[in-house]
């Protein structure tokens, strides 16, 4: 018996996803099982077409598996209706996308608040929390800016703040650094690490070994199956000073960009 039992953010058992097309059935996932304990930092890797995005969509409750179960907390997502899935997405999952996916009409704070809006939780208090999150990602002085007025890195930081606003089971990041240069990638990875150090669970899909090296664990997919699932050796960790320095530089950069 474990001395302190870790709670599971997600439990995946024999997850399968088939796409039925006219001429054939694409078996994008062929039975995937793993657990994600709270506080884990997982990198999902694999060649193109191996099923990474498919898996992430299932984890993000954007899609239903063809077979298998996916327990989120105590609930089996595989049995949920569309509305229930939406509720779960609004309240329990944080998304960070490769192309940021902010809403053009909305300001920085308003973008951060969107999940709360769909939870029906918009209050003066939640506004304060959104502002706090914006400051945490270094955008406290750009609350009223539109996405178009921000750089890629800044937009991605808004997206990260947004993914945190509903206090999710985990953050799902699909190629979150794919559109960013190496400096900005570091910035985002430092932010992820900081969040993970604070106890947040992160699951990210990446092509780059460099990026995956920052995670605690790598799951490698191949043809819809897990090729291996193992802890990262020689994990790259930012020191506290580095995190501060990166945050500071990003701050300076965004200020001089004005």
């Amino acid at each position: 018996m474990n001395a302190k039992p870790t709670r599971m953010a997600a439990v995946i058992r024999d997850l399968q996803k088939h796409y039925v097309l006219k001429s054939e059935t694409v078996r994008a996932l062929r039975g995937v099982s793993f657990d994600v304990p709270e506080g884990d930092y997982v990198a999902i890797m694999g060649p193109s077409g191996s099923g990474k995005s498919t898996l992430l969509n299932l984890l993000g409750c954007l899609d239903q598996p063809t077979h298998g179960s996916f327990l989120l907390g105590d609930e089996d997502v595989a049995q949920m209706t569309d509305d229930q899935l939406s509720t779960i997405r609004a309240s329990r999952i944080g998304f960070v996308f490769q192309s940021y996916n902010l809403i053009a009409q909305l300001s920085v704070v308003e973008n951060i608040e969107v999940p709360l809006y769909y939870m029906g939780n918009l209050t003066a208090q939640s506004r304060l929390r959104s502002i706090e999150l914006a400051s945490m990602v270094g955008l406290g002085e750009r609350l009223d800016h539109r996405p178009a007025q921000l750089s890629g890195g800044q937009q991605q930081r808004v997206a990260i703040a947004r993914s945190l606003v509903n206090d999710p089971y985990f953050i799902l990041a699909d190629e979150a650094t794919g559109n960013l240069d190496s400096v900005t990638t570091e910035e985002i990875l430092a932010l992820f690490q900081r969040l993970n150090d604070e106890g947040k669970t992160i699951i990210m899909v990446t092509h780059e070994d460099e990026v995956a090296q920052h995670a605690k664990r790598v799951i490698r997919l191949r043809d819809g199956e897990i090729q291996f699932d193992k802890p990262v050796v020689d994990r790259k960790v930012f020191t506290a000073e580095q995190i501060q320095e990166i945050a500071h530089n990003a701050d300076v950069a965004s200020r001089s960009a004005d």
Binding site: G60, L62, D82, D83, S86, T87, I88, R89, A90, S91, F95, N101, L102, I103, A104, V114, P115, Y118, M119, R162, N166
Partner: peptide
């Protein structure tokens, strides 16, 4: 369409 996708991903129900 993209915005609709984002809103759905962030928890917007069909009726929203």
């Amino acid at each position: 369409t993209r915005e609709i996708g984002i809103r759905r991903a962030l928890g917007g129900k069909q009726k929203d």
